[in-house]
Design a protein around this nucleic acid. Structure first.
Lengths: 230, 230
DNA sequence: ACCGTGCGATAGTATTACTATCGAACACAA
DNA sequence: TTGTGTTCGATAGTAATACTATCGCACGGT
């Protein structure tokens, strides 16, 4: 990933580049807000069109359907996260500290000043929390994967897995641990808000509780591997 | 949970008891097969009606909508899992062994002869793998939770969390660990099949690889707590 | 003055997700 | 046997969703 990651979006994401026009930018920015407000299921292009005072058909010129818009928004989120991860670990020597910083990024909101893409970062994170599974838990997953549309998510996962491998080279499941931690960092806050008995946190203790939970999980697992020599 | 758990389904799940009539049983049994085949999004009551040679309106007499049918099916799955968990730990003394057995249950398919409910257990598990998030990752989550419809899932999670607490009383996040392991036991096989680079398994190594991954995760975390006295 | 692009405007279609009503068939009870 | 209730088939209809297609104007650049 390079510094201007914004220009390397997969061209299958959108029918035309939404960042190139005023309407395109409105679709993406307001689409994020509205999809988060209504939830993916209740979100429609018609409602978005009314919100930004345009027509449904105009939105379809940019995105094939709402699933692609969601994927577009999540791609931004994953790219931003990977960028934040790279920034955090580039000026750090100690691998253990790198991992700590990355887990911190997963638990807290994206630090300000990372790169202003004009998207509401909190909304982006919230959207990822509640809707991101819906981009791949569908029958079309293999087709979409074939044209590389999940690459940003995988890249993020691989970056984290690399750190785990660097810290504990003998550990045999770095990628599974990375994807598990990534998923847990979204699920646990969602559970806390809606199904709190599935967690041990309280509204006050989170996100520090979550941070501690994930750090303990990761380091216990990796350290055990180091000690036992597997 | 008692032995005849089948009779204690929440009455808000269905408009009338589908086990009481021939049509109701067909809706549930064929609904499971068809929803798994088509995926939740492409599944409709109209298609199910054609498959079982009845009318759409007749299905609506049993379930408000397809979301409730999914919830009904998953409730069976969770109840079955909890029952299997209870069976597995009741004739075991050692807490560590209990946990091992339960993790085994999460990774492998439900043992035969547990109780024939007439539902295809493999299909039920596959449905849970790919669709179960969709029952709670929606705007209506709080309403549904209010009428206790997620209780079976929570109960299962709590059973597992209790074991963790029994094994490592000082560990502060037994429920979060349980929900994380529960989710991971579904996500990892799904990733293996569709987005394999998010895992470290191969089609051959799974599900033993998954079992080892989760066991290591759980015991490393709990054992670390015991040693460090937190 | 010409040309392409973006977009508004309108229209139309198939499918989805329901809701309502009616009447035949049957089951059981008086 | 007659009444009563329940199930289910059959039909109809509605509002919303998820698109697709076409036309023509306004604009910015060449």
């Amino acid at each position: 990933m390079n510094l201007r990651f914004s220009i390397h979006l997969n061209d299958k994401l959108a029918l035309r580049d939404p960042e190139a026009t005023e309407l395109g930018r409105k679709i993406v920015r307001q689409g994020l807000i509205l999809m988060h407000q209504l939830g993916y299921e209740h979100f429609t292009f018609k409602k978005l069109a009314e919100a930004i005072e345009t027509k449904e058909a105009s939105i379809y010129r940019y995105f094939e359907n709402k699933h692609r818009l969601l994927l577009y928004l999540l791609t931004w989120h994953w790219n931003l996260m990977e960028y934040a991860v790279l920034l955090a670990i580039n000026n750090t020597e100690d691998t253990r500290l790198k991992i700590k910083k990355v887990v911190g990024l997963l638990c807290h909101s994206i630090p300000e000043g990372i790169e202003d893409v004009g998207l509401d970062k909190k909304a982006l994170r919230d959207l990822a929390t509640s809707e991101s599974n819906k981009v791949y838990l569908i029958k079309e997953v293999d087709e979409i994967n074939k044209v590389q549309l999940f690459k940003p998510y995988k890249d993020l996962c691989h970056r984290i897995a690399e750190l785990f491998s660097a810290y504990a080279p003998q550990y045999p499941y770095p990628r599974s641990l990375a994807s598990t931690v990534l998923e847990a960092s979204r699920f646990q806050p969602y559970f806390l808000e809606h199904l709190p008995s599935l967690t041990d946190f309280t509204q006050n203790s989170a996100p520090d509780g979550l941070l501690h939970f994930l750090e303990t999980l990761v380091f216990s697992t990796l350290d055990a591997t180091i000690k036992s020599e597997f």
